[in-house]
Design a protein around this nucleic acid. Structure first.
Lengths: 347, 347
DNA sequence: CAGCCCATGTACATCGATGTAAAAACTAGC
DNA sequence: GCTAGTTTTTACATCGATGTACATGGGCTG
C-alpha cells in the first residue's frame, strides 16, 4: 500500500524503468502504444514522481524562495501574491519565508536551509547590510527587491527617489509648506527609506523650502501603530504640519487615525500621501493618495531575472564565464490621487 | 569550486563519509577529537548538507505547506505569520501556497506537487467540498483550518456559530433590531460562512426577531470591495439597517466605507461588527468591533497536530494501526468592542 | 534478400546522505 | 598478557529518478 515507485509502474506496464521515465518526461522517441500502456499503468497505480529522487538526479528543485520581512504588512502580502503568480507561469513554486526584519533571519535564509534547497532567492531586505551581501559565494542566485544595497547584485525596484520627489512636489503644488516625512531617515544608508527621503528633500529644495531635520519622524517599523504613534507624538510636541509624506501606506493609515483622534481634518488641514497602494488605502476614510508601484511588474521582472540566473548557473561549465553583468531594473510607478490630498489647499 | 560534498569533507578530515554524517547529525559515539577534526573540515570547506540527498534517504523534508486562498487577505497573512513562527519553533519550514480560492488549485496543492514534497499540509479551504477531501489516500497528513468540512479530517477552528451568536446578541443588546449579515449564506454547505450565519439566526430567534432571508447580503469574495458593494447596493435598494454583522473584517471595512459615502453615521445610525481582528480594524475610522480568534493558538495547535500526524505516518509500520481518531480542536475567541459598536443606541 | 539505418527500448551507473552490519580500536578485569 | 565487553569507525547498500551508452528490431533501399 505504500506509494508506488517508478519501478512498480515499470513492472505493471511490462517495460523498463527508463521507459516510464521517458514517458513522464515527454521524451520524443516512445511509441504511441508504449506511451499508452505506461500512462495507463501510472493512472492505475496512482503514481506520482518523487521529487526527492528527481531533485537529487537533476540538481534543481523548481522551487524559489521569497524572503520578506513580514507577511502581514499588506505590501509584502500583495507582492507575494504577484510573485507566486508570476512563478506559477514559469512552472516554479514559491517558498515564502518570513525574516521578521531581522538580520540573522535574513542571513539564515540566504545562507542556510535555502541554499541547498531552492534554486534561487528573491529577497526583500530590510536589515541586511551591503557587507552581508558582498560575499555571495555559495549563495544560490539571488535577486533583491528594493533599493540597491550592493553593487554587483541583481535588483528590481521603482525609482524611489524620483517617486518621493513627485509626491512631495504634488503636496507643494497644493500649497502645502510644512511637510513632515513620516518614517524619513537622512543617514547614509542605502535603503528605501533613505532614497525616499532624498527625493523629499530634493523637492523641498527645488521649491525653496528650508529643510528641517525635525520634519523626519522616525519610526520603529513601517506599520500602522508606528505611523499613528509618530504623528501623535509630533502633534503633542507642537508640530503643525499641513501635509504628511508617509513612507508607506501603513504609516499613512496610522497617521490618518492619529490625525482623526486629534481632530485634524484631512485633507483640509493636513494632506496625506503614502507609498505602495495597498488595498486598505482605497477604502479608508478618507481614501489615501499614494505612490503606486507596478507590483505585478516588480514580481514578473524579478522572477524572470531570477530564472535567467538560475539557468545561467546550471548551464554547462564551459559557458560559466558567460555570466552577465548584474542587472539593475527599474519598474514603473504612478501617483494615485484620492481624498487625502483632494482639493487645492485650505478653505 | 563546486559545492563540497560529504565525500570531500571526509577526505579532508581523513575519516569516512559516515563519520562525517555522524558528526553532522550529532550521533553519540564519536570521539571528541574526531568530532573536532570533522567540524574544522566542514568549516574550512564551507560544507552544508544537501537536502536532496537527505530527503531521498530519510523520506522527510522538514517542510510543511500552508495553503490559503489569498495571501493579501490580511487575516490569512496574519495567520501565515503565526504558522511560520509556530513551525520554526518545531524546526519545520513552511512553504506557503496560494490557491486563489479556486477548487482546482486547492486540489492541486493537496494531491500534486505538495504530496511528494512536503511532509504535511495545513489547508484553509474555501472552495473544496467534502467530497474532494474524502479520498485522502495518497495525500500527506493534512490539518484543515476553519469549519469541519468532512468527518474524519483533523481540523482546528474557533466556535464560529457560537461567536456569531455572541456578536449578534451584542448588537441586539444595543437595541438594534434590523441587522444585516454581510456575506451570510444559509445554504446547506459546511463552510465558515454557513456556521456564522447559523449563529446569527440563532441570536435573532432567541430575541424573537423575525428572520428575513433578504438580510443576508451575498458577496463574491470576502474582501473590502465586496463589502462596500454589497452594502451600497442594499442601501440603494432601500434597506435601512441599524446594524451590520459582517462575516469578516475586510467586508466590515468595506462596509464602513460604503456607509460613510452614504452619509450614514457609525455607530449612531448603524453599528458594525466584523470577524478576525485584523490590524486594519484597529486603525480605521471608526475603529472596528470584531470577533478576535486567537490566531496564535490556531497556528500553534495546527502545527502541533500536524507534526504529530507526520510522526505517526512515518512511524514503523508495526504501529500503523495506532493512528488516532481525527481531532476536532476548538480555539478561543473573544469579542473586541471598539468604536463601531460604541454606545447603547441612537440618540 | 542482404545490408543499413534509425526509432525504440534496456542495463547500469549515478546524484548525496545515511542506515546496517560488521570490523577495528580501546578499556577493563583477572 | 589475554579475553570479554564497549566504543568508535568503516564499507556497502540503499532511497527514486534519470543520463549514458548500448542492444534490439523493423523498415527501407538497392
Amino acid at each position: 500500500m505504500a506509494r508506488p515507485r517508478i519501478k512498480d509502474v515499470a513492472r505493471h506496464a511490462g517495460v523498463s524503468e527508463k521507459t516510464v521515465s521517458n514517458v513522464i518526461n515527454d521524451y520524443a522517441h516512445v511509441s504511441d502504444r508504449t506511451r499508452q500502456v505506461v500512462r495507463e499503468a501510472i493512472e492505475h497505480l496512482g503514481y506520482r514522481v518523487n521529487l526527492a529522487g528527481r531533485h537529487l538526479r537533476r540538481g534543481r528543485t523548481g522551487i524559489i524562495a521569497l524572503v520578506v520581512p513580514e507577511l502581514d504588512i499588506p505590501y509584502f502580502a500583495e507582492l507575494a501574491r504577484h510573485v507566486v503568480r508570476a512563478a506559477e507561469e514559469r512552472s516554479l513554486t514559491v517558498l515564502i519565508h518570513q525574516s521578521g526584519a531581522d538580520r540573522a533571519h535574513e542571513l539564515a535564509a540566504l545562507a542556510g536551509f535555502g541554499s541547498t534547497f531552492v534554486d534561487g532567492i528573491i529577497l526583500s531586505p530590510l536589515a541586511l547590510t551591503a557587507d552581508d551581501l558582498r560575499d555571495r559565494a555559495g549563495f544560490p542566485p539571488t535577486v533583491l527587491l528594493g533599493e540597491l544595497l550592493e553593487e554587483g547584485a541583481d535588483h528590481v525596484a521603482i525609482d524611489n527617489e524620483g517617486a518621493a520627489r513627485e509626491a512631495t512636489r504634488h503636496l507643494i503644488g497644493l500649497g502645502r509648506r510644512t511637510i513632515l516625512a513620516v518614517g524619513g531617515r537622512d543617514d547614509a544608508g542605502l535603503g528605501t527609506a533613505q532614497a525616499r527621503t532624498r527625493g523629499y528633500r530634493a523637492a523641498l529644495s527645488e521649491a525653496g523650502i528650508a529643510y528641517d531635520p525635525a520634519a523626519l519622524l522616525p519610526v520603529g517599523s513601517f506599520r500602522m501603530p508606528d505611523g499613528a504613534q509618530a504623528v501623535a507624538r509630533a502633534l503633542a510636541a507642537g508640530a503643525r504640519p499641513d501635509a504628511l509624506l508617509c513612507l508607506n501606506d501603513q504609516l499613512a493609515l496610522g497617521a490618518l487615525r492619529a490625525l482623526h483622534e486629534h481632530g485634524v481634518k484631512v485633507p483640509e488641514d493636513v494632506a496625506v500621501i503614502g507609498f505602495d497602494d495597498v488595498e486598505g488605502g482605497r477604502f479608508s476614510v478618507p481614501t489615501l493618495s499614494t505612490v503606486a508601484p507596478d507590483k505585478a511588474a516588480v514580481a514578473r521582472v524579478a522572477v524572470q531575472l531570477l530564472q535567467h540566473r538560475i539557468e545561467e548557473a546550471t548551464a554547462p561549465d564551459g559557458a560559466e564565464s558567460e555570466a552577465q553583468a548584474p542587472q539593475d531594473l527599474v519598474v514603473d510607478h504612478r501617483l494615485v490621487l484620492r481624498e487625502s490630498t483632494e482639493g487645492s489647499g485650505r478653505h
